[in-house]
């Protein structure tokens, strides 16, 4: 196999790992609360700014900045739920989506006000790792491993804890669960915080690969929504697999043509999937 193609495939898998985290977070929130957070990528953007600011401006060690970012974005997710989503729980879904679209503007505007539109770089780079005849970026590999770990922790949380079981149950049937003694609002809060924490983790992994600017969310936001829908909204495993599929399309497409066109191909693929299997690629 052509080593450059192999490298593109490998990079696609790594990219899929990075897409996977926000996809899992979005699916978690959608599956439980039944609301699409249109501003999800902007939560990630805020997290990236937090890490960048704490590390380069305040001089904190990177690990401490990461450790602060996670709970901070979890709190942001909570606030989003309490201030915006909760008053709209009974509203038509479109009103909910548009309200979170408003939050997208708020976060972009706030980031522009505070940090201006300059591109900020963390300036952390790990040496590339040689695998046979292929070079892989060390930062991307580390981010990939961290993404898989995050996904595994989420899976264990949902599978083995009492709260996780309640979350899965409410995603299955939100009418009956309250009758079984589960307080849906408490579960909504936990899911929102967990969704936020996943955005925070995604921010830590992205900030080492991308420069931060107020509109960075628009560069990976749309594709994460598409991956969610492709995997089946609310379907964790489907979204996880679709993330790798999209990562491969983008990366291998970029190998044959230029990167922009590979996104066009990926989006067209998404539209096709919508027409062929609107319920999601991996839904039984």
């Amino acid at each position: 196999m052509d080593p450059f193609l192999l490298e593109a495939v490998l990079n696609g898998v790594l990219l899929g790992g990075v897409f996977a985290l926000p996809v899992l977070g979005l699916n978690l929130v959608f599956g439980v609360v039944d609301v699409i957070w249109l501003c999800y990528a902007e939560l990630v953007m805020v997290g990236m700014y937090i890490v960048w600011f704490l590390h380069t401006q305040a001089g904190w060690p990177l690990a401490l900045a990461f450790a602060t970012c996670l709970p901070a974005i979890a709190v942001l997710g909570l606030l989003l739920h309490l201030l915006v989503v909760r008053p709209l729980l009974a509203a038509p879904p479109i009103n909910q989506v548009l309200a979170t679209g408003g939050v997208l503007f708020v976060l972009q505007g706030a980031a522009t006000l505070v940090f201006s539109t300059d591109f900020r770089s963390l300036g952390v780079e790990m040496p590339p790792i040689e695998l046979g005849e292929v070079f892989v970026s060390g930062t991307k590999l580390a981010a990939f491993v961290a993404a898989l770990l995050g996904a595994a922790v989420l899976w264990a949380f949902l599978k083995f804890t009492y709260v996780g079981t309640a979350i899965r149950a409410i995603a299955r049937d939100r009418e009956v669960m309250p009758l079984m003694g589960v307080d849906p609002h408490r579960i909504y809060l936990i899911a929102s915080a967990a969704g936020g924490a996943l955005a925070g983790l995604a921010a830590c992994l992205l900030v080492v690969q991308l420069d931060v600017h107020p509109f960075v969310g628009l560069s990976f936001g749309p594709i994460t929504f598409m991956i969610c829908v492709m995997g089946g909204l609310g379907n964790m495993l489907g979204g996880f697999l679709a993330a790798f599929l999209m990562g491969l399309i983008v990366s291998v497409g970029g190998f044959y043509g230029d990167t922009d066109m590979s996104y066009v191909v990926a989006f067209l693929f998404f539209i096709l999937v919508m027409f062929i299997r609107p319920q999601g690629l991996f839904t039984r």
């Binding site: 309200a99 679209g101 503007f105 708020v106 505007g109 706030a110 980031a111």
Partner: peptide
């Protein structure tokens, strides 16, 4: 950024 910020709050 102020315009986007105020837009967003108004939209919500």
């Amino acid at each position: 950024g102020a315009a986007a910020f105020v837009y967003g709050i108004l939209l919500v």
